[in-house]
């Protein structure tokens, strides 16, 4: 959202559409981008979307993006590390046939290109990509701004557009758990060995010295 707003700061005629997928989406939460300055909110909301993995999510989002049409730039978050590990953005680019730049920390739009600073382990790559393109955004791009009161008032009047699978031309079997390509066979808690050897001493000072001796004995230092 912050990345889109930064672009709109420079080009006020930019239209920002927010797209989100889920079930029972809390209105106050999903309307937040409207308050920050987005123009339109589209929700893919239906029980059929439940249990979507990255494949099913990207399939639904790609269909919705095609229906919305004519986007110059599609921005995705880098995603919660937990279940998806940031696959949806890249997947969308394949389904939409767009070039993809991941982990952007800076985006500048000039003519029909985006100049992107892409985070890598020991610095960043500067990439110039033709638009339309898909860019995933790193949290290094910056914190989202606060919504101004005017925006909050405006957002309160706007209603999201809600689409179900049929509205975007996908079968219920292509999305949600049914459209997913992987399954979890087993969920378990890692066994904690809990065999910590507490190193003592007459005083904390002695314990500290004893710890160093112990680490030497265990060949750790």
């Amino acid at each position: 959202m912050e990345a889109a707003l930064k672009i709109k700061d420079g080009k006020p005629d930019t239209k920002i559409t927010i797209l989100s997928l889920g079930t029972n989406l809390t209105r106050d939460v999903v309307k937040k981008p409207l308050a920050m300055g987005a123009d339109e909110l589209v929700l893919l909301e239906d029980p059929a979307f439940d249990g979507s993995d990255s494949w099913a999510t990207a399939t639904a989002l790609a269909a919705a993006i095609k229906k919305i049409g004519n986007a110059d730039l599609i921005l995705c978050g880098r995603q919660a590390a937990d279940w998806d590990a940031g696959q949806v953005g890249s997947g969308l680019s394949v389904l939409l046939g767009l070039p993809c730049v991941t982990l952007a920390k800076k985006i500048e739009i000039t003519d029909n290109k985006a100049k992107v600073h892409r985070v890598i382990a020991d610095g960043y790559q500067v990439i110039e990509v033709d638009l339309p393109a898909l860019i995933t955004v790193s949290n290094e791009l910056g914190q989202p701004r606060y919504a101004a009161l005017k925006g909050i008032m405006a957002a309160a009047r706007k209603q999201p557009i809600v689409w179900k699978p049929a509205d975007i031309g996908v079968e219920a079997s292509q999305v949600g758990a049914a459209g997913s390509k992987s399954k979890v066979n087993k969920l378990f808690q890692p066994v904690k060995e809990g065999k910590c050897e507490i190193i003592g001493g007459e005083t904390p000072v002695e314990a500290g010295a004893n710890l160093a001796l112990k680490l030497r004995e265990a060949k750790l230092i």
């Binding site: 910590c196 904390p204 000072v205 500290g208 001796l213």
Partner: peptide, 19 residues
């Protein structure tokens, strides 16, 4: 694997010296 229960302000300087 190994631990010392104590205030780090006292334990750490002694540990560091021994290391």
């Amino acid at each position: 694997r190994f631990g010392v229960v104590g205030d780090w302000k006292q334990v750490l300087p002694a540990f560091t010296d021994k290391v």
